[in-house]
Every structure is written in C-alpha cells, then in structure tokens.
C-alpha cells in the first residue's frame, strides 16, 4: 500500500504536464494559412507530422527552417508533412522572415496564442512529432544539428511504421510548463513579469487584470501607472 501510494505521488506531477507523448491533438485550435485560409492539424491525420513552433525574432529558427525544408523535400513522398506554426500577430514580420528564409512547407499562424498554450510552448523553436493518428509522440526543444538529427531519426521510425523509442525527446528545460498568457508572443506587446509561470491561477488572473487596467489607462505600457488602483 505504501509503495503504491509513493508511486502515485511520484507520478502526480505528470498530471500537470502538457501532453508530450501519446496525447491527442488539442481541441478547438484555429490556425490560418498565410493566404488567410483556415488550417487544421486534423486534416493531416494519416501523415507523420513535424510541427515546428517558431517566431520571427527567433534566430535559431532561421537555421531550423532550411533544415525542415530539406526534411520535407526528402521525406514528403513517404508521408511526412512539415508545418511551421507561428504565434506572431504581425503578418508583416512573418512575411519578412519568410522572405529571408523561404520554405516550401506550409506556414500557419495562430495569433490567439492558444496553440502555444495547448502544446505548452514557451520558447522557440519547439518542434513536435505527430504520428499518423495525430498523436504527439515526441517533443524537441531548440535547434541545431543534434536536435535536427533526432527529429529526423524519429520521423524516419514513424514513417517506417516503427514506434519512436523512449528518450527521444529533447528538453532544454525539463521542468518547463507554460501557463502564462500566450499573448506575450505578440511582437510589440511585451510580456509583463506578471506572466508568472509559477504563480497560482488566481494571482495570475488578478495580476493580469491589474496590468491590463494599467496599460489601458496609460496607453504606454503601463509605465505611467494609472488603472484601476486595485494593486
């Protein structure tokens, strides 16, 4: 009994972790292709998907994109689909990035940031590998040759109908969880430190209200104060 209780307690933190392995696609995500048409990850079921979260201000992403483009080129006929997903709310910044780093795989946007929250993304690049059933089977944080090699090895396994081995994930920050306001991704909207990743939900909501109230009153990022006075 004691051993079972201890085992359950050891596993308790996993209940708070976003789905990394075996989890299905988060429901209700609305993404838009760069031409404005709606895009759905569900539509890619049947393919092995490399879903790459990126941002225009992310320098490592500029190295990853050409690699991912070559991955799509080399494995596309075997059923691989690469998708670049940005939470950037400024389409001009996205287009400028793509002008510098053109790719042939689809690039989609979720300015609402819900996808970032749903997948637990807090830094860029973060790449997910989805199997043909749309399940997230691996998470890769960061760019670089080692990460790219692991993405490719895992994708090749899935394309061959083999399971992705345990330990495939690349976690730069293993304890990382995203529970703050994803609107922080918006270029020009700088995240206030109230985007507390370690705050309790009620405190975070209160701080967000105070911050939003100050910003609405001051109009300059809140530096001049003002707002509801409830801080």
């Amino acid at each position: 009994m004691t051993r079972r209780l201890l085992a359950a307690l050891y596993l308790l933190p996993l209940a708070f972790a976003p789905p990394v392995r075996g989890g299905g696609l988060p429901a209700g995500l609305r993404m838009t292709a760069m031409d404005g048409s709606p895009f759905s990850l569900e539509s890619l079921k049947g393919s092995v998907v490399v879903l790459d979260f990126w941002a225009p201000w992310c320098v490592p992403c500029r190295t990853s994109f050409p690699y991912l483009d070559s991955l799509q080129e080399r494995y596309g006929e075997k059923g691989l689909k690469v998708v670049g997903l940005t939470l950037e709310d400024d389409p001009e910044a996205v287009f400028a990035f793509l002008d510098d780093v053109p790719v042939r795989f689809p690039v989609v946007r979720d300015p609402s940031g819900r996808a970032g929250d749903a997948f637990g993304v807090v830094a860029m690049p973060t790449t997910f590998l989805l199997d043909r059933q749309g399940r997230v089977v691996a998470r890769f944080e960061g760019g670089g040759k080692e990460v790219h090699a692991r993405i490719e090895a895992a994708a090749a396994k899935l394309l061959a109908g083999e399971p992705v081995p345990a330990g495939t994930d690349v976690r730069v920050a293993p304890g990382l969880q995203a529970r703050g306001a994803v609107k922080a991704w918006q270029r020009g909207y700088l995240a206030d430190p109230i985007m507390d990743l370690d705050g309790d939900p009620l405190t975070r909501i209160l701080r967000e209200h105070v911050h939003a109230s100050k910003e609405a009153a001051a109009g300059d990022g809140g530096a001049a104060g003002g707002g509801c006075g409830c801080n």
Partner: peptide, 9 residues
Amino acid sequence: QQCYPPARI
C-alpha cells in the same frame, strides 16, 4: 538553443 518571448521588467 532557444529564444524566449519578448518580456519586460
């Protein structure tokens, strides 16, 4: 390895 979103203090 990674870049974190714009922030302010």
